[in-house]
Design a binder for these strands. Structure first.
Lengths: 189, 189, 189, 189
DNA sequence: GATGAATGAGCTTTCATTCAT
DNA sequence: CATGAATGAAAGCTCATTCAT
């Protein structure tokens, strides 16, 4: 792979940013190069094709980019704790805070991820199941099937984010408190 | 609204059925009349337009049709119990069984519902919150914010269905058992 | 050509009538079997195709039918006079009265005639030129090129009808008086 | 409104030109992007949509373009005279000459104008009525209802043009002479 | 690198017509 | 005779992509 010039990188970022906004606004199915170009202030959709080999490459990059930012954000919450319980709590909190602070990114991610290559839900699940198993090994969590409960934890996360996307008025701080209560009850036992 | 002839009804059903299969296979964004016509063995897309005023009408009908079948299915589980706990358990069980027995319908529904008119997630939430409040009033459930926990319960349902859609090998019976354990812990307290 | 049954004739008339209304309302370019069927209260456009070999045949029949009615109407005015001047005046009066009393027919005719076979403007012109020549031979009209002035007379007729079609509020009685003044000045000299 | 590039302008003009030819040849109802693209030597109808937002925009532009050319042409005749009589005569002469020299444009205009936005017949009538009133005020014309006679004058113009469109062999120079005789008789009195 | 014009396949929808019942 | 379902061509329009400048 070639090294990318600074200008090139800047343009790609600009286009990805515009795509994020479009995705959050009209959804994946209605996203088009025309809308993205307009949103980015570009004079031609040709420029998008110039910087991205194909629509799919753009979709992948949008997904990867938002995912990277999200991961960084979550990491900022995680590295303060060392128990599995603390890590789980930090993860959930980070997710809801990201939604609160970067709603557009989050909504765009939910729209684009099903159509992007790159890490999928299985990868999320693997990580979560590992965390849960670690908690069980440390005696913090009750006995349960970690793979299955991992599905549940991520389902709760996704569901709250989806609801918040539908209803911008949702009180995410209340959600965070109630969510932790529920997860603690369910996982710690 | 005019009465629809038998043939008309049959064709519409056939088209809706083909649309369901296409939706489950390629997703909403890639759905097209061409694919549906091919799947249904129709000679042209014109026939779809003949039976449905517009693409949106087809989308709405697909959503309504699957939703109706799903509601019937769920009802078959519900009317055996009378406590809120029993009803909640039956609801969750019914959902997972529907996925197990009618996977294509369920997957199609997740694809189409965000783009259909008709009842939306808010309506689901309202019903669930009412059930939870009834359980609280009956002393079956612990104290929590019913609207928020309704989000959680439906999130769990949706998440399991989504996971099952991604991974057809998922053991839904195991999920059902673990899910009820988790929900009981979380809701009954 | 086969004899047409009574029912057949009635249906054709009904369809022609509906076509006239549609033509007057939306114009030739926007006319369609669907609109005509709806207007006639028919359940299918197939019925139109059943009674008319083709769209063109319907168009021709509409034109011929209205033209026939128009001719009858005009005749009712003509047969009272015997001079060319009287006949010319009666002709013009009849035209404007027909527009006043049967506006829909007249408007439909202007829409359909350019697309119908059957007698065309040349035939109208021939008749008018003959009348003018007769008037010249009788010493009623001044010397002019009859073929050319025939164009003018029919142009005046057509223009007034077209204007009246555009502006239903046009005072056709005033038009009739002014028109005759003008024609008399121009033709008698 | 954005400034249009030279190439853009040229293509639009080319498409408008092709549309004019198609209109003159097959009429408004049978006009289609396919015919226009073929006539213009374009590879696809998509290019027409690329340069014109919609069919209606093309229709409007064709009408406006021909109208503009026509107005310029007429102006070249008008500015030599100062009496109402002279202006009227120049107007009529200009119309017939335009038909003689730019028959395709003229025929296209008659086809497209009823379906275009932009100035309509009422606007033509207003101008003509004003001219007639000016002539009356100057004592050049006899007493008549200017609004009505304006209809007549334009009717004569339209009728001759229509006839010429139908019969390309029509002697427009003869028409011009006879027309002026008739108009003079009718208007001057 | 950027532009905007061009491409051609694709979309949904409408059309007149045909056909089995 | 009438119905309404079916047909396939054609419509206007949008799409991602390509290309010359």
């Amino acid at each position: 792979m070639r090294a990318k010039s600074v200008t090139e990188q800047a343009r790609r970022a600009q286009i990805v940013g515009a795509a994020v906004e479009v995705l959050a606004e009209v959804g994946y199915a209605a996203m088009s190069f025309k809308l993205i170009a307009a949103r980015a202030g570009l004079s031609s959709t040709g420029l998008i094709s110039y910087h991205f080999r194909s629509r799919q490459e753009l979709v992948d990059e949008v997904s990867a980019d938002v995912l990277r930012r999200f991961a960084e954000f979550v990491l900022g919450f995680l590295d303060r704790s060392d128990t599995a319980t603390g890590e789980l709590r930090a993860f959930l909190r980070a997710n809801l805070r990201f939604m609160r602070d970067h709603r557009t990114l989050m909504v765009a991610l939910t729209q684009v991820r099903p159509h992007a290559s790159g890490p999928g839900p299985e990868d999320d699940l693997r990580g979560m199941a590992d965390l849960l198993r670690a908690g069980q090994a440390a005696g913090e969590f009750r006995a349960f099937d970690a793979d299955t409960v991992a599905i549940f934890v991520l389902a709760l996360r996704n569901g709250v984010l989806a609801r918040s996307a539908e209803d911008p008025g949702l009180d995410l701080d209340l959600c965070e408190r109630e969510l932790w209560t529920v997860v603690e009850l369910a996982v710690v036992g």
